[in-house]
């Protein structure tokens, strides 16, 4: 299972795969922009400010998706001590921080015309801000140690524990009363959104998911190159791959 996943990941992250993914993402993002800004009508009460829905929700979705990938990759790293899992977690966390910050900023921009304020300590906003701080901390932890193995181990622990805030943030609109609206699209039961708006939203979610794959692919390549530079500088043995050197260090340190 893991090896077939790695084979698929290998194909996507190959230079040609990365280019194709980049173009597919660009086309999907353009389609999403047309759906959101041209096809979808303005909201009856919020006017055109409601169009922020089509980038705010996909940004929040990417934040959750990124941190779920960090969670899984961190567990996989702790179980196997393979460098590629740590690299995947680092790549995904960086993308997650960007989109969490974007979701908060877009929410603030939307809140001003709709709620009359840029900021309020609503449960969803507060738990999402905590999520952002946790993963900024995760990225900071990655800079604390010079040892790749120790850095990966500490980061993996934060990646696993930090994920606890994701379900809290998602369910906060159900658990506590606040200004933020509840779930709009339900997998089970009827959605409370007009069909054309739902199509525009789903197009956005799809485009942002492709964007996530593209960004993580490029970030993974960067991680491999950075590791290779470190291994080239440190390796006393010529002809050994960076991957092998880093994994040797990881297993030696337990």
């Amino acid at each position: 299972m893991v090896s077939s996943l790695e084979r698929v990941a290998g194909r996507i992250t190959a230079p040609r795969g990365e280019r194709i993914l980049g173009w597919a993402t660009l086309v999907a993002m353009a389609a999403s922009a047309v759906m959101s800004l041209v096809v979808s009508p303005p909201d009856a009460q919020q006017g055109n400010a409601a169009r922020l829905l089509y980038i705010h929700v996909p940004s929040a979705w990417l934040a959750y998706l990124s941190f779920a990938v960090v969670f899984v990759a961190s567990i996989a790293y702790l179980a196997t001590r393979r460098t590629r899992w740590d690299r995947l977690a680092a790549a995904s966390a960086e993308v997650g921080v960007l989109f969490t910050a974007l979701a908060i900023a877009l929410g603030s921009l939307w809140g001003k015309p709709v709620w009359g304020t840029w900021w309020t300590w609503d449960p969803r906003i507060t738990t999402t801000t905590i999520l952002l701080l946790i993963y900024v901390g995760y990225l900071a932890v990655r800079r604390l140690s010079d040892s790749p193995a120790r850095r990966a181990r500490w980061a993996a622990v934060v990646g696993v524990v930090g994920f606890l805030d994701v379900p809290v943030s998602y369910l906060s609109v159900t658990w506590w009363r606040g200004l933020h609206q509840g779930t709009t699209i339900r997998l089970l039961g009827e959605s409370t959104i007009a069909p054309i708006m739902q199509v525009a939203l789903m197009t956005g979610v799809f485009a942002f998911t492709l964007l996530f794959l593209y960004l993580v692919t490029v970030r993974l390549r960067l991680g491999r190159l950075e590791d290779r530079a470190v291994a080239e500088a440190l390796s006393p043995r010529l002809g050994q791959s960076a991957e092998a050197l880093l994994e040797q260090e990881a297993s030696a340190r337990g």
């Binding site: 006017g47 055109n48 400010a49 980038i55 974007l102 877009l106 939307w110």
Partner: peptide, 18 residues
């Protein structure tokens, strides 16, 4: 209902820029 295009455009520009 006010148009509120400014907020939408600001959001899209910010997202594209980031």
């Amino acid at each position: 209902v006010p148009s509120l295009w400014g907020y939408a455009i600001a959001g899209y520009v910010m997202t594209a820029g980031a």
